[in-house]
Design a protein around this nucleic acid. Structure first.
Lengths: 247, 247
DNA sequence: TCACAACATTGACCCAGATCAATTGGAAGC
DNA sequence: GCTTCCAATTGATCTGGGTCAATGTTGTGA
């Protein structure tokens, strides 16, 4: 294992996640207080950020890269319960330990705060507390959407749902409508997708092959995905074309 | 359908959910502001409190009874995504419509606030905003625990998990350890249990019969459940005996 | 007290997805 | 270039839970 590297953090005003992260609503003076507290940490792909049950003495935001939140049963069955993309928040103010394993899926950079100072700051900075509530409510909505996927969708619908979630979140960073043709890199292995969807990796592979055969998706290599028609994919996912997933 | 009845609300200081609901951390003066805004509504078993997509002009807490949050796909498949017990909060400050159907499973009494005044109150009452964040984080934890149940557990484990959740939540109201023998009333039909667990009602019925046959549970009538040994049930649920579900 | 409706149980059969196993493909290291 | 290693694909077979259908139980209102 590798000791996480400390990097010189850039200015908050230049931060790529400035307008989506927990600090999104902060005024310049609040930002400068955060500026003095923050520190960057980076992790390599595959590295565990926090082990379930471990004492967690920091909180933070994903700046770049992707991490997963997973639960594991004693016999080894695992379920992913959260997919952390840039701007997502890690850690629970007011609780000691982590309930989940947090693992870097790609190279990962996080903007961290020691927990005690952050909690103190939250006390007298309603902008932060308010934004955190908003983000937590969004995560709860996403978790509930995901429960419908896990509980009631077929394997094919599950794959289509996952692809549409990733396509939408990708599109929400770069502008442009989430319609028509979309292109993105799949940041997960087949096994990680299986853990996300409550399937086996073989089933994931078969269903991706089937979607490719049926022209719903195109693959360049294993990871580069082209969606020729986003509406078609949403139909395969079992979502009504208007509603569907939150960003 | 029935127009919801308006009841004369009791004093907040006598309220059964005073110490667990969104108002739990309020000081007497804050409570008296809430007192002037609140109104009670009651619903009969089976009545829909809010339809998914409907404009939602109030928020509120469950005072007594049980409600469910469900999502439905166009073809009728439904998944329960939340089980609302006394003290749980309904509604999302900062959003117009409801994303889910909210249905009263039993007779239900709610303590409601019109949304705009409640949001205004939340602005300058950190005790409320803070408690709501705490409750939302707890709900997110519960949703993630549930995702493991939906994605990776067998039908038998799912039933055992549901029974242990209800037993624990029941026990958290009346004092006493969540160990040894436990007794409670099952507030859900077999169909509602199936919607909770991503199963069919036939499978629910078969697995309950199997748990009864194996002595893990005893039934008096269809709804009155006796758990002779809580640890045994937790083992059947696939939870390690110490950890497991949050209250 | 009977009849009806809603809820629940049980049985027979089937199929989507799991499991076990053998290849294939591609990138990294020598 | 060749080997190694790991991700991914594909095939053969099995099985847990779904589906369809009949029957049982309980509570309620005429």
């Amino acid at each position: 294992m590798h000791v996480p590297e400390r990097l010189a953090p850039p200015e908050c005003s230049d931060c790529p996640i400035r307008h989506r992260a927990v600090c999104a609503r902060c005024e310049p003076d609040e930002l400068s207080r955060l500026e003095t507290l923050k520190y960057y940490r980076s992790f390599e792909a595959g590295q565990t950020v926090i082990w379930s049950g471990d004492r967690m003495d920091f909180v933070g935001s994903v700046v770049s890269g992707i991490a997963t939140l997973t639960q594991t049963m004693e016999d080894g069955r695992t379920q992913m319960v959260g997919l952390l993309l840039p701007s997502d928040f890690v850690g629970r103010p007011g609780r000691e330990g982590s309930a989940y394993d947090v693992v870097a899926t790609t190279e990962l950079v996080m903007c961290c705060f020691r927990k005690a100072p952050f909690e103190a700051l939250m006390q007298d900075t309603p902008h932060i507390a308010h934004r955190l509530l908003e983000m937590t409510l969004d995560e709860l909505d996403a978790a509930r959407e995901w429960m419908l996927v896990l509980g009631r969708k077929t394997a094919r619908e599950k794959i289509a749902s996952l692809l549409s979630i990733i396509a939408r979140r990708d599109a929400s960073l770069s502008p442009g409508p989430a319609r028509g043709t979309m292109v993105f890199n799949l940041p997960l292995t087949r096994e990680a997708m299986a853990d996300y969807l409550g399937l086996t990796l073989e089933t994931v592979s078969r269903q991706i092959s089937a979607l490719k055969r049926d022209g719903v998706i195109l693959l360049e290599g294993k990871r580069h995905v082209i969606i020729p028609d986003m509406d078609r994919l949403l139909e395969e996912a079992g979502d009504d074309s208007d509603g569907g997933f939150l960003i």
